[in-house]
């Protein structure tokens, strides 16, 4: 059964652009589910990244509640948020942004590293398992520069997976890739999304992604104008 991973309740976000305060995310109610490949689509500047980073507890909303496990976490302390972020979410961005001085294996382990402490055996096992699952086992000790762009992006996904997150949050992960590597990356993410303890949320305007979507949320000017989940109608309070 799919579960609600994150519930956004009356979320808004304003930014000060130097002259005035602008509402870049208008009042939004959304449930994000596991076992779903959710695509957030919309033109550039429509608020996709804002929405994604609010879901991922990176950006604090101006108002509204973020419910995780039935608790409002929107206004927790930065430390608490950081811990929750680490535990609940994995992030994948347009460029894999791997650390060039670290091997593939070390990169994947980055999110498990608690300052000062050695990497646990358990984490190492998880890393090996994930790399094997991604067909990257033989690259464990390669350096990022030795990999293709598509492989680097899959290492980034492996890194995002290391803490067994409930959501993988991806911002334009395919827009810098050629067709073949982007297909591999999308196949990987799609497979990962079909698990009842995990969902994928992807921000994109790459049309190649749409056939992968189980659900599409369309943003325009900071507003959800269509959501395949709710049949395109305004969602009402439950």
């Amino acid at each position: 059964m799919a579960k609600v991973a994150v519930r956004l309740n009356e979320i808004t976000r304003e930014f000060f652009d130097g002259k005035q305060i602008r509402m870049v995310l208008k009042k939004t109610n959304l449930d994000i589910y596991t076992r779903e490949f959710t695509v957030i689509a919309g033109p550039s500047g429509s608020g996709k990244t804002t929405l994604l980073t609010i879901i991922g507890l990176i950006l604090t909303p101006t108002s509204g509640r973020i419910m995780i496990d039935d608790k409002d976490v929107a206004h927790r302390s930065e430390d608490e948020l950081a811990a929750m972020r680490m535990k609940k979410f994995g992030f994948v961005f347009q460029n894999a942004d791997l650390i060039t001085a670290l091997s593939v294996a070390q990169n994947v382990l980055v999110p498990t590293a608690i300052q000062g402490a050695p990497v646990s055996a358990e984490s190492k096992r998880a890393m090996e398992e994930i790399l094997a699952q991604f067909g990257l086992a033989s690259y464990a000790y390669a350096m990022p520069q030795q990999l293709s762009a598509g492989q680097r992006q899959r290492v980034a996904i492996a890194r995002a997976m290391i803490n067994a997150p409930i959501l993988l949050l991806c911002d334009e992960p395919t827009s810098a890739l050629d067709i073949e590597s982007s297909t591999t990356v999308l196949d990987t993410l799609k497979r990962l999304s079909q698990d009842e303890n995990r969902g994928v949320v992807m921000v994109t305007h790459d049309p190649r992604v749409f056939p992968y979507a189980d659900r599409m949320i369309k943003l325009e000017d900071g507003e959800v104008i269509d959501d395949s989940k709710s049949g395109g109608e305004e969602k009402h309070e439950e």
Binding site: A41, P207, I225
Partner: peptide, 16 residues
């Protein structure tokens, strides 16, 4: 699938 494809391919005001 049609709705998503239209949303993904055609500019917002028209896709709407």
């Amino acid at each position: 699938a049609w709705i998503m494809a239209i949303h993904g391919t055609i500019e917002p005001s028209r896709s709407r």
